[in-house]
């Protein structure tokens, strides 16, 4: 876990490209094998190499949450992990959230429908991250109040300012206790 505490010596050899590795990811239930250099983030692997552009890049530094995806059911920022570090893992993106209904047809995840009904977005760019984050939050099971939702959804910035509608949408699906206050 040591970083380059002692500043890295200047690299004098001519610049070169990293070696490629085989990376296996199960994305939205489909096993995928990619040839990637280690410097490819999970986010760029999804967007640039698999063309799953539903996952958004809003800062690329873990400061906005637009890239939130589920890895083995847990929400993470796809921009701050390398695809190769996720080798063998199950990734769920916004494209994989829809659920089969009773007739076997693809239907929206309840959170997706609630976001539409509550107008929980405007420009839509943070929305896939918000929705994946909400699903991850529900999996985690630590929400008791609306204030908990506000705090636990604070890793997803919405510059359009749809926060109150986002909380309403999530509440309508989770139906937690109303605020103590």
């Amino acid at each position: 876990m040591t970083l380059t505490e002692k500043a890295a010596p200047p690299m004098k050899q001519p610049p070169s490209l990293p070696a490629m590795h085989t990376v296996k990811l199960t994305v939205n239930g489909t096993e995928t094998e990619l040839q990637l250099a280690p410097w490819t983030s999970l986010l760029d692997a999804l967007r640039e190499y698999m063309h799953l552009t539903g996952t958004k890049k809003g800062c690329d530094h873990g400061q906005c949450g637009a890239c939130t995806v589920l890895v083995n059911g847990k929400r993470i920022n796809a921009c701050l992990t390398l695809a190769i570090m996720q080798d063998g893992n199950e990734i769920t993106t916004i494209e994989g959230l829809s659920q089969k209904d009773a007739d076997g047809k693809d239907g929206l995840h309840p959170i997706q429908q609630a976001f539409m009904d509550h107008d929980a977005f405007q420009c839509g760019y943070c929305t896939p991250g918000q929705i994946c984050s909400a699903v991850g939050m529900m999996n985690e099971g630590h929400v008791k109040t609306a204030d908990d939702i506000r705090e636990l959804m604070s890793g997803n910035i919405c510059r359009c300012g749809a926060y109150t509608n986002i909380v309403d949408a999530i509440q309508s699906v989770m139906n937690p206790q109303p605020d103590a206050a």
Partner: peptide, 22 residues
């Protein structure tokens, strides 16, 4: 000049800024 990586939340950020260059 190698580095250990675990969660990556700080190291990858620093690498993107070219502050860390393992």
């Amino acid at each position: 000049t190698a580095a250990f990586i675990a969660g990556g939340t700080n190291l990858i950020d620093l690498m993107k800024e070219n502050v860390a260059r393992p």
